[in-house]
Design a protein around this nucleic acid. Structure first.
Lengths: 89, 89
DNA sequence: CAGTCATATAGATGAATGTCAATATGTTAA
DNA sequence: TTAACATATTGACATTCATCTATATGACTG
């Protein structure tokens, strides 16, 4: 029936750059500029990826002055794991 | 570095019809014709989806006369869960 | 063998997506 | 306030992808 929410979250994972972003966030909250340094993409492209990761709930964002700080969402992670466990009991 | 294998597996999940296929396979091995009955897609489209699910290792296939029987791969499931746990420890 | 059934492959098409350059918005500093 | 910096948005473009129709392959049946 309603796979849309699940698909939205899984699609957010379905890109090499976004997986690398998540890998970088594993070690804790990071500024967009730090992520930008590590990836071979332009700033608008990073912004686009971060929007997808945040919109699906996997990543939290926090505005700190002129910086945006991103971190992995505990709640989103749990939701993702529950979803995976649902399909692959 | 090498996110390609991870991306391949996650991309296989990133489609509503494929999630529904996995949902149907939860209850056990199913023939392609049964899956086709449940989904609003044509036979070639189903064949395409099954190829993606099998190629990434999430689904096993078994030729039985003129039928193809599909089932969720225990090994693939475990690999997926390990991957998710890697990114969202 | 000829016909039918189940599935796969080929090729075409429209929609979604990742990417960039250019520009806008918002924040800090001089 | 003006300049510089960090990020977001817009619009364009090339690629990927889900889907279909038509056809091929392979297996059973009469």
């Amino acid at each position: 029936m309603g796979y849309r929410e699940d698909v939205k979250m899984v699609k957010a994972l379905a890109d090499e750059n976004r997986l690398e972003i998540l890998q970088l966030l594993k070690s804790g909250e990071k500024c967009a500029c730090v992520l930008l340094d590590e990836l071979n993409i332009t700033q608008p492209t990073l912004s686009h990826h971060m929007k997808l990761l945040c919109d699906c709930g996997l990543v939290n964002y926090r505005k700190d002055g002129k910086w945006m700080r991103y971190s992995i969402s505990k709640e989103g992670s749990e939701k993702l794991k529950e979803m995976i466990n649902h399909y692959f009991m």
